[in-house]
Each structure stands twice: as structure tokens, then as C-alpha cells.
Amino acid sequence: MGGLTLGARGVRATARIVATPEGLPVLEGEGPLALRRTRACGPYHRVTVVGAMSAPLGGDRIAVEAEVRDGARLHVDSAAATIALPGRDGERAHYDVRLTVGEDAELRWLPEQLISASGSDLVMRTRIDLAPGARLVYREEQVLGRHGEPPGTLATRLTVHRAGRPLLDQELAYGPGASGGWDGAAVLGGHRAAGQLLVVGPQFVDRPAEPRMLGDNAVLTPLAGPALLVTAVAPDARLLRHVLDDALRSHLTTR
């Protein structure tokens, strides 16, 4: 892995986490991505991502890689929201997340919101690879613009494979650089916050989740695999978190 690079076209940085049942043999932060070992409950190792500098800015290419090896338990959160900001030259920023969860391992990936500030342009790609017996709780939330401002351009892609087979692959795009209709009634309907919660685990093999609405602006969908997906929109980040937290409490199982 290359080290941190600071150049005229932005920051290049990758943070890495490796969790085993015994501990965290790899915990390497770079540039804007500082990693801190924090107090955990039960069998989990816990890591908090701390923003060491403003990022992602236009032109930045940053990444987080986490590997949860067989039998390990890892909880990852963040100390504050991530804010996508415009760079000096209007360049696009890239933020990649790559997660691998082994057999009889569990990852809880619960960061704070991503805020798309006015004038920013960010592509965020998340790739998750799960062993057949892996467990996952994954939350992502996007807030379109800070208070009183329009959003930047935000494109996201979430790709999940389980046992080498596709489980989920979806793309979303918002803001002035996205195709028309993103703020229409069939997508956001004027809301400023959007998010989803993905829960994967063997508990759904024999008892799949049942599809249903969760209030007026959220839906629970069982996937073609031992998993469920909650998708929600809300007027603001606080209300969005409330919906996703309620779903998490209802479907999270402990071992």
C-alpha cells in the first residue's frame, strides 16, 4: 500500500483495518482518515474513524479498507459526519470503501452521515464481500446540502456479494450533476436526507423478513438471500436516523 500523497490534484490516502478474534493487528490511518481504537461492548473490537483534516475535497481520492477475518467481531463508527466539499478547480472527489467479512465473522459498519455540500462533486463506491456464514449490519446516510444551501453532486454505488454471488448492487445520484428527476415525487419528493440499512445473517435463512412500509417514507425489503434492506427518506438527518435506528433495534440479533 502506498503512503499518503499530497499533490496539486488533491489527497491520495487509504486507511486499513484488519480484525481477528484476538485483536486488531492492522490499524493504519492516513491523511484525513485517522483510526482510533475505542471502547467496545461484548465480543466486538471497536474502531472510530476521526476526521484529521477536511475531506473529501474536489480532486481527493481516499479509501477505507476493512477485513474482518474468520470468527472476528468488528464495530466501526465515526466521530462526526463526513462533509464533501468543493475543491479549487471543480474536480470530482472519490471515496472508496472496501469491506470483507469472513466465515462466522460479523461487521457492524455504522458511520455518521455523509453531507453533500453545495458545489461539491463526489463519487462514493462501496464494495462488500461476505463469506456464506458472515453477518453484516451496514448503514449509510446522505444529507443533501448543509442548512439553507442546495446540495452538491453525489453519486453512490453499493455492491454486496455473499459467497461469491451478487446480493445487492444499486446506484443512486443526487444534485445538479445527476440526471433529471432525482428530486421528484418518485425519488426524494423534496426530502433532504436519504439512507439505508442492510442486515445480512443466517437468521434470515429459515425466517425471511416480510416486506412492509415503515411509516410514510421508508420501506423494508427482503433480498434474494439471507438479508433485508431498509430504504428511507426524511426531511432532515435527525428524522432519518430515527427511522433507521428503529429498524435496527427491531432486526439486530446478538450472539
Rank of each mutant, 00 (worst) to 15 (best):
Met1His: 11
Gly7Arg: 07
Ala8Pro: 09
Arg9Ile: 03
Arg12Gln: 14
Arg16Phe: 01
Ile17Lys: 02
Ala19Ser: 10
Thr20Val: 11
Leu24His: 09
Gly29Met: 11
Gly31Met: 06
Gly31Asp: 03
Arg36Met: 14
His45Tyr: 02
Val47Pro: 06
Met53Glu: 15
Leu57Ile: 03
Gly59His: 03
Asp60Gly: 04
Asp60Gln: 00
Arg61Glu: 12
Ala63Pro: 15
Val64Glu: 14
Val68Thr: 03
Val68Asn: 01
Gly71Ser: 04
Arg73Ser: 07
Leu74Glu: 01
Ala80Ile: 01
Ile83Gly: 07
Ala84Gln: 06
Ala84Met: 08
Leu85Ala: 08
Gly90Asn: 09
Arg92Val: 12
Val97Asn: 08
Arg98Asn: 01
Leu99Lys: 04
Thr100Trp: 04
Gly102Gln: 04
Asp104Phe: 12
Ala105Ile: 02
Leu110Ile: 10
Gln113Asn: 01
Gln113Thr: 11
Ser116Gln: 02
Ser118His: 13
Gly119Cys: 07
Met124Cys: 10
Thr126Trp: 10
Arg127Trp: 07
Ile128Asn: 11
Asp129Ile: 02
Asp129Gly: 05
Leu130Trp: 08
Leu136Ile: 02
Val137Lys: 12
Tyr138Phe: 15
Gln142Lys: 01
Val143Asn: 03
Gly145Ile: 11
Gly148Met: 05
Pro150His: 05
Pro151Gln: 06
Leu154Arg: 05
Leu154Asp: 07
Thr159Tyr: 06
Arg162Met: 12
Arg165Cys: 08
Leu167Gly: 12
Gln170Ala: 06
Pro176Lys: 05
Ser179Pro: 00
Gly181Phe: 06
Gly181Ala: 04
Ala185Ile: 12
Ala185His: 11
Gly189Ile: 10
Gly189Val: 09
Arg192Asn: 00
Gly195Thr: 11
Leu197Ile: 04
Val199His: 06
Gln203Ile: 08
Val205Ala: 13
Ala209Met: 04
Ala209Pro: 13
Glu210Phe: 08
Glu210Val: 15
Pro211Leu: 12
Met213Ser: 14
Met213Leu: 15
Gly215Cys: 04
Asp216Ala: 15
Pro222Asp: 05
Leu223Gly: 10
Ala224Cys: 07
Thr231Arg: 15
Val233Leu: 12
Val233Phe: 02
Ala234Lys: 00
Ala237Ile: 01
Arg238His: 02
Leu240Val: 05
Arg241Glu: 00
Arg241Gly: 11
His242Trp: 09
Val243Phe: 07
Val243Thr: 15
Leu248Thr: 14
Leu252Glu: 13
